[in-house]
Nucleic acid binder design. Structure first.
Length: 643
RNA sequence: GCUCAUAUAGCUCAGCGGUAGAGCACUUGCUUGGUAAGUAAGAGGUCACCGGUUCAAGUCCGGUUAUGAGCUCCA
């Protein structure tokens, strides 16, 4: 019997029934047979030597393809790294070893703690294994046979995986030539280890078994792997470049902010950092005003009663900072919480006076400083802090206004991102989480409303099941930065619960009272985090309008100090953040120093400039200078000073 | 919160049982120099904090706090 195999180009090739992927590749050409490592049958990957059973569409996966690269990484993890670990630490137990973006990891339980210094030794062992160029073969075992194999090896995690599996038969066990090493794996794997490319182990850390923090912590070893040494080096170079952009490093170098032990997770903003913050806030404030928001401000410290009513006390008590007044001086016994969110405060403002349907949509905005007690291991520079300011806003509206408000918000957000230099963003629709308030009917309604709004508006989106807020479904906005990293910033969260909980109502056209829909929304998220993202996106070289110091006027000889002063005050009069540098240093020294601080423009002023009343302008990132008259120079600078 | 690592001068780091070091930055001389480091001298430290081992502790061992890489979490 022969079977018909449809290739990706739609051509059909006939082979005897039971032929393998390798047979097919060989039939097509010797070159392909050499590069082939696995097979995709009707979209499902299988090992190259597995039999093809019936008519189907197939494509041969080669080592050069993206799929091939991932299979190589997988084999490297599950066969090479795992075997190396078993060789070096025989009493360790294997857990799992999947591929991840650009690499792989393997989790093991190990009585000896493995540290970063051990990676070299493990890598050496891996190279030894790769050099054997062993073939990889597999056996298919029944559930009980597979269990027995791993029982005899003492591999309890593998047994657990088998036990938890709904599968009855055909558990795949992979072996290498002349070795007792065996791993349970869904495959596929490389046919042999000669396909392994360039790799490097990168880090070691702990990870919970099955990702559950109640489970035992295992040792996780991370690595990266590529087909060639060149690609590996390019990737390592990219990592180094990303490290140079680290906002914590640049923040120190540029003197923007610091942290200290007495206030973990809370920013000490230095003058230049605070200037960035203020510029960003002014920019957002202006945009909000243009879009019909009204800015409000609500208290920092609020009685727990309000948090109980809003539901926060129940759900997030452990992440709230609580304050009590010193008993000796207190004449009232109150437990207060520092606000972790602005929404209950906004409802209090809404609740002053009676609202009519004619007042809706009512859009409150607040640059509200919130405190959340983040657990100690979660903080990260400006990106994850305990005190942060949101560009927060709450839209009180009717059901009928949800769609138009969704559209207006996305447009608003997309303009803001674009002005800040982020041209691309993705939208994620997150649905009801396990821990939530509100009835299922309300959730049905909220999810349907949001999905239909975004569908009707025609924006592409993907769904993230169970990632919604505890009070409602949400849209999240993920932007892509200059080096391709993704940051979730904007959010748009429907809430059919809070208005009712806090008794916010409006009088409808029918004269009856109704609960408005509340939409929690933010574009930047938190200023702290967003400034971190901006610093990394621009590698410190912020757009002119955001730069804390925009121009430094540097004198070359002290005879021209008066002229340098004059230029500086002219720039300042035009609203430019200019500084003068009259120090007794060479111009090269000054240029170097201000370049490190990422000042966008340096004016180098010498005798020629003073005599001719000109300026010599040096733009950051270029070694060219341009000379122009003083007036032209000032106009040139001012022309940069807009968003 | 968990695992592992780290904490020495303003910054970046060396020192790892026996009198605390370097480069840069800082101060003061000299130097007026044309676009990414002129030059010399000086000052600067309870080696994160608390306890233990030792004749002797930045150095070894506990603990605490903070930071880093991950995990978990993120209204």
């Amino acid at each position: 019997m022969r079977m018909k195999l449809t290739l990706p180009d739609k051509s059909i090739r006939e082979l005897p029934e039971g032929s393998s992927g390798y047979d097919l590749a060989k039939d097509i050409g010797a070159g392909l047979a050499k590069a082939a490592i696995a097979l995709s049958v009707d979209g499902k990957q299988q090992d190259l030597n597995d039999a093809i059973l019936e008519d189907c569409s197939v494509s041969v996966i080669t080592i050069e393809s993206q799929d091939g690269l991932e299979i190589m990484r997988h084999t490297l993890a599950a066969q090479v790294l795992a075997r190396a670990l078993k060789n070096l630490y025989p009493d360790s137990k294997l857990a799992i070893g999947p591929t991840i973006d650009k690499g792989f990891y393997y989790d093991i339980e190990c009585s000896k703690t493995i540290s970063i210094d051990d990676l070299e030794k493990i890598e050496k062992e891996m190279h030894k294994i790769v050099q054997s160029k062993s073939s990889i073969t597999k056996k298919l075992l029944s559930k009980s046979d597979a269990l027995n194999v791993f029982k005899s090896l003492g591999e309890s995690y593998k047994q657990e995986i088998i036990n938890d599996s709904e599968q009855k038969n055909d558990f795949q066990l992979y072996y290498q030539d002349n070795d007792e090493f065996v791993d349970l794996c869904k495959g596929p794997h490389l046919p042999n280890l000669s396909f392994i490319g360039a790799f490097k182990l990168t880090k070691v850390s702990g990870a919970y078994w099955k990702g559950n923090s109640n489970n035992k912590m295992l040792t996780r070893i991370y690595g990266t792997a590529w087909n060639t040494e060149k690609e590996l080096n390019e990737y390592l170079h990219e990592l180094e470049e990303a490290e140079k952009r680290d906002h914590r490093k640049l923040g120190k170098e540029m003197d923007l902010f610091h942290f200290q032990d007495e206030a973990p997770g809370m920013v000490f903003w230095h003058s230049d950092g605070w200037t960035i913050y203020r510029n960003l806030r002014n920019f957002v404030r202006l945009k909000l005003q243009e879009s019909g928001y009204i800015e409000v401000n609500t208290p920092q410290v609020i009685d727990r009663k309000l948090w109980e009513a809003s539901g926060h006390w129940d759900k997030y008590r452990e992440n709230m900072f609580i304050t009590e007044i010193d008993e000796e001086h207190a004449n009232e016994k109150r437990v207060n919480a520092l606000k972790p969110m602005n929404c209950p405060g906004h409802v209090q403002i809404y609740n002053q006076g009676i609202k009519s349907y004619k007042d809706l949509p009512l859009k409150y905005a607040e640059f509200g400083l919130c405190h959340r007690y983040e657990r100690s291991g979660t903080m990260h520079g400006l990106m994850r802090v305990r005190a942060f300011t949101q560009d927060d806003g709450h839209i009180f509206c009717t059901n009928n206004q949800i769609e138009s408000e969704t559209g207006l918000f996305i447009e608003f957000l997309s303009n803001l991102y674009s002005d800040l230099g982020f041209k691309e963003f993705d939208i994620k629709l997150s649905t009801r989480p396990e821990m939530r308030v509100g009835s299922d009917e309300v959730w049905d309604k909220a999810e349907a409303a949001l999905e239909s709004a975004i569908k009707n508006l025609g924006y592409p989106y993907r769904i993230d099941e169970g990632d919604g807020a505890f009070y409602g479904p949400k849209l999240d906005f993920v932007l892509t930065d200059a080096i391709g990293r993704e940051w979730q910033c904007g959010t748009f969260q429907l809430d059919f619960n809070l208005a009712e909980r806090l008794d916010a109502q409006y009088v409808g056209e029918d004269g009856n009272k109704h609960y408005p829909v509340m939409i929690h929304r933010a574009v930047l998220g938190s200023f702290e985090r967003f400034i971190g993202i901006l610093i990394e996106n621009y590698a410190g070289k912020l757009p002119f309008w955001l730069a804390p110091k925009q121009v430094v006027v540097a004198s070359i000889v002290s005879d021209v100090n008066d002229y340098a002063d004059e230029i500086t005050s002219m720039l300042k009069k035009q609203g430019i953040r200019a500084e003068v540098d009259l120090r007794n240093e060479k111009i090269g020294y000054k240029v170097r120093e201000h370049s490190f601080k990422k000042v966008p423009f340096i004016f180098a002023i010498g005798k020629n400039e003073k005599t001719d009343r000109t300026v010599s302008i040096r733009k950051i990132g270029s070694t060219d200078t341009s000379s122009m008259s003083l007036d032209e120079g000032i106009n040139y600078i001012c022309s940069h000073n807009k968003v």
